[in-house]
Nucleic acid binder design. Sequence first.
DNA 1: CGGGATCGTTACGGAAGCGTTTCTTTTTGC
DNA 2: GCAAAAAGAAACGCTTCCGTAACGATCCCG
Lengths: 116, 116
Amino acid sequence: MPIELSASQALNLWHAVSLEQVRIDNRDLTLRQMSILLHIYLVPPPHTVRGLAGILGVTKPVITRALDTMGDLGLVARMRDERDRRNVIIKRTVDGALYLEKLGDLIIDQGRKLSI
Amino acid sequence: MPIELSASQALNLWHAVSLEQVRIDNRDLTLRQMSILLHIYLVPPPHTVRGLAGILGVTKPVITRALDTMGDLGLVARMRDERDRRNVIIKRTVDGALYLEKLGDLIIDQGRKLSI
DNA sequence: CGGGATCGTTACGGAAGCGTTTCTTTTTGC
DNA sequence: GCAAAAAGAAACGCTTCCGTAACGATCCCG
């Protein structure tokens, strides 16, 4: 079931959610970090550094750094792949799931408040 | 007319748009910069540094820096307020309008592709 | 079993962001 | 007029991010 948004609805939704996210959350993830986080939680595993770099169209160190930062924040975790120890498997965490759950609620709330 | 989104629709929408934005655009605005830009273009003027700082819950230098950066990118412009020359009025630009128009299209497109 | 490919990380110099503090310009109010 | 207040910018030290390049660890395969 697709969603039909008008141009002003689309931008107003983005505006309201971004603004609330800035006001509420001190963690201030970059757009890249947010993309990585959402991808890890919404797309079936496994997720690797190389795979994410390809999907986002960025270099591997970008992914490594993003995982460092979000790992410190408790939003993701890393584990060696025991079947091929060159790989690192990126895992979800409880805190990460909670973070995205709140973001989802925020989007839903702001969607309800839309007009025109 | 409010929009009713399910939790997975909300997050999938955010995911798809963020991902496309990362892949397509090299300018990589921070969430704060994006909030400021959307606010300037969606809320009736006038917009001042102090006003934006209050709305976003950040300090004034954060706004000044964001305007510096987005000014260099051509997304916003600054003008002295001639009626109170302490103030700076933040103006929209053609490039900024174009940037947000593309973002709006992206959100609309990804909304159409949603399922479940 | 050894050379080459692959994977993720680290190193490096540079750019940009942060919060706090200070400064300059302008207005306000006595 | 002139001190105090207000607005925005600039300075400062620090952190984080960037892309490129180099690096160890591991696997693959001849």
